[in-house]
Amino acid sequence: MRIAVIGTGLIGQAWAIVFARGKHEVRLWDGFAEATAKAMPLIAEQLNDLHQAGLIDEPAAALLARIKGFDKLEDALEGAEYVQESLPEKLEIKKEIFARMDKLVSATTVLASSTSSIPASAFTEDLPGRARCVIAHPVNPPCFVPVVEICGAPWTDAQTVQKTWDVMESTGQKPVKIHKELEGFILNRLQGALLREAVRLVEQGYVDAEGLDVTIKDGLGLRWAFMGPFETIDLNAPGGIADYAKRYGPMFESISKEQTSTEPWSDEVVAKLEAERRQYLDADKLLDRRMWRDRRLMALAAHKKAADRDIGK
């Protein structure tokens, strides 16, 4: 399948790798021609890392040969059966690029957006081809973290959703269907709820930033790397999830009464968190730490891939 990736930043680069890994032909375009040129060596470097980690079976050069950059949008879109837009998270940019793409592609081409929060209805309502527009929201970086949230607008055709699902499965991603639109979809709403409580606990002096991070990475995160919250609680009571709800439901109900604030994060708590994080990681070391994170994600992805084979998933 020929796939166009629109936007060649970090997400666009990762998508190019994902689609090439699935043996698709990938055509890249960005509003800035130099961005596409800069993306190619970065993609090549990531492909080499993935091959060394055992996350791609083919030589890196074979995947890179499937990826090509284009200066003109119409050339990148020519013959594309599926398009993944990954431009900046601004509504006007989404409206403008989807209007352009809707005029250039065939009637059967799926137009998907990587947006992390904007519902498809916000930028596709007036398009003649709005039925083939959908959200395919990845987790950054999608070449290491496979979940993709698929969410259509009220007018998105069921065939569009199914084709998007099939494309994602063909690349080794793990699609999740969102049954109706909501801001932030599922992952970011869950992440946001945890972040709000984490900030509140630090702000009110119950824990510091490092203690909070340790609680997640060496506590909840270890279980969540292999199972979701419902399976977690299903296994954490002798009689399963109903037993868990009976035992611990009243506790969570009581706690939730303290978790009703919708106030923005204060400048004071943000400054406190910034200061605490800089004690552990200098600002000029952030890139090095991100690269370390990606190597750890590669190792974890390889482990989970092997574990999935063992259990037949």
Rank of each mutant, 00 (worst) to 15 (best):
W292M: 14
A301Y: 00
H137I: 08
L42G: 01
Q46M: 11
L104Y: 00
R290M: 12
P138A: 09
F32E: 14
A60K: 00
T262Y: 10
Y280Q: 15
E92A: 15
T108I: 08
T260I: 14
C133M: 11
P154Y: 10
A20G: 03
A39H: 05
A107H: 07
L87M: 11
G12F: 06
E149W: 05
A122R: 15
K174C: 12
H51P: 00
D218K: 10
D310P: 05
L297C: 03
H51V: 07
D294Y: 06
G172T: 07
A122D: 11
K304P: 01
D57Q: 13
K38D: 05
K272P: 04
K174G: 01
F230I: 07
R295F: 01
E81C: 03
A112F: 04
P142S: 10
G219D: 01
E183W: 13
R290P: 06
A275I: 08
A39L: 04
R21D: 02
R277S: 13
K38H: 11
L63H: 09
P119C: 03
K246H: 12
G172P: 07
G249A: 05
R293K: 13
G22R: 03
P154W: 09
C143T: 05
L286M: 12
A242Y: 02
I17L: 01
K177C: 08
I3Y: 11
L50G: 04
F230C: 05
I233E: 00
G54K: 07
P141Y: 00
R223S: 10
L87K: 02
